[in-house]
Amino acid sequence: MNDAPALKIVDLVKTYDKGTQALKGVSLEIPQGEFFALLGPNGAGKSTLIGIASNLVVKTSGTVEVCGVSIDVDAPKAKGFIGIVPQEFNFDIFAKVIDIVTNQAGYYGIPYGEAKEYAEEVLKELGLWEKRNEKAQALSGGMKRRLMIARALVHKPKVLLLDEPTAGVDVELRRGMWEFLKKLNESGTTILLTTHYLEEAEHLCRQVAIINGGNIIEQGSVKSLLGKLNVTTLLLDTVEPVTADSIEGIGFKAEYKDENTIQVMLDKGETVNHVLDALSKKHITVANVRNSGSRLEEVFINLISK
C-alpha cells in the first residue's frame, strides 16, 4: 500500500453546460485512513466533487488523484480504489438484493465464487442477508440505503465516498449506520462523507471541509473548527417556572423560550458557572443544561453567512 493521499484534488473546476460554475478551483487532500466530512448547503458543489472523483461528472479542469493514481492517467485503476454511495437510489429495483451486490463485484473483476462470499459478508454486516433473495423494490427506504453501502463495499475499496448517506433515514437507523461507518474507518477504509447533518460530521469525522458556492471556505480538524466558535448557545431547563421579566438584567445574552426554558449565548471566555451564578442571584435554579444544537452547526452558519 502506498503512502499517497487517499484523495488529492488540486484546483478542481467544474462548469456545467448552462454556465453554472459548481466548483471554482477546489483543492483538498485527504490522507489514507481519514474520516473526512465535506459540509455545505444544497448546491454548494459537494455532489459534483464526489461525481468527478467517481467518474460520473466530467471535470472542466484540475486534477484528481486516488491513492496516488490520477483519474486522467489510469482511470480504471483509480476507480478500482473507490466505492461510491450516491445520494439517490441507483440500482435495478427489479433485481434481487444478492444479484445487485454480486454483479457489482463482477464489474470490479471479482470472480463469481468470491463475489458471493464477499456479498454474504457485507450483507450480513449490514443486516440484509435475510433479504438477499427479495427484489430491491420490496425493501424499505433504510434497507435500500444499506444496500447501496453493501454494493459499494463488496470490492473492498480503500476509499469510500458517501454522498448524504443518511438523508431521509430515521434516527435509529442513522445511529446504526454511524456505528457501522466508524468500525469500517477503524478497519482502515478512508471515508469521505458529504452531509448537511452537522451533528453527523461532528460525531463521526476528524477532519472537515466546508464548501459553499463552489469554494472551500474552511478546512481543518473538527476540534480546530469548534475552537473558532465565538458564541456557544445553551438551553437551560429551570426547576421553577420563569418569566421574560425575571431573566432581565442577568448580565448575559439571554432569551425566554418558555416557562421552563431559557436560551443563553455565551461569548468566548464566559462560562456556564458565570451564568448559573447570575441566575442563582435571581433565585432561578437550573435543573439541566443542553446544547441548543450541533456546535459545528454554529460554526457553519457563521462561515456561510459571511
Partner: peptide, 14 residues
C-alpha cells in the same frame, strides 16, 4: 433513466 448505468460507469471496466 434509472441511473443504473452508474454501476458500470464507476467500475474499473474500460
Amino acid at each position: 433513466w434509472l441511473h443504473v448505468i452508474d454501476e458500470v460507469l464507476v467500475s474499473p471496466m474500460p
